[in-house]
């Protein structure tokens, strides 16, 4: 359980230590990329709970989603249409669905534990 936290800390520290910053103009792209990454991560966790997790799908999805979202935002920028809203909408919806799935699974897990205790 501690490994993800450790890596989160590593990621944060890396960000703070390198002190990188991107131009304000590109912050839209970055936020979309963050959203895409979140979506894939939550999807992966959910798939894991449902025992359908596949490493290759996860890795490819992680980067493919990010690239796709950024490209979509870029095209939207060029066309003058807020196409990134489509990505926000899709990812937002899926994030909620994934969270709901995870929550339901955790409830089920707890229920099972309680029932096991009762049987004892």
């Amino acid at each position: 359980m501690w490994l993800p936290f450790l890596f989160l800390l590593i990621g944060l520290a890396l960000g703070f230590l390198t002190n990188l910053s991107i131009p304000d103009y590109y912050s839209n792209y970055l936020s979309i990329a963050i959203l895409a990454a979140f979506d894939t991560l939550l999807g992966g966790i959910r798939a894991h709970f449902e025992k359908k997790f596949n490493q290759h799908v996860f890795i490819s999805g992680f980067f493919f989603n990010i690239v796709c979202a950024v490209i979509l935002t870029f095209i939207g920028d060029q066309l003058g249409v807020d196409l990134y809203l489509a990505a926000v909408f899709a990812f937002g919806l899926r994030i909620f669905q994934n969270i709901a799935g995870i929550r339901r699974f955790l409830f089920d897990l707890r229920q099972e534990k309680i029932q096991k205790k009762m049987r004892k």
């Binding site: 993800p4 890596f7 989160l8 800390l9 590593i10 990621g11 944060l12 890396l14 960000g15 703070f16 970055l30 990329a33 963050i34 990454a37 979140f38 894939t40 991560l41 992966g44 996860f58 992680f62």
Partner: peptide, 10 residues
């Protein structure tokens, strides 16, 4: 994945 997300957020 979490590390990458953390990095991007920072």
């Amino acid at each position: 994945a979490i590390a990458i997300i953390g990095f991007m957020i920072v």
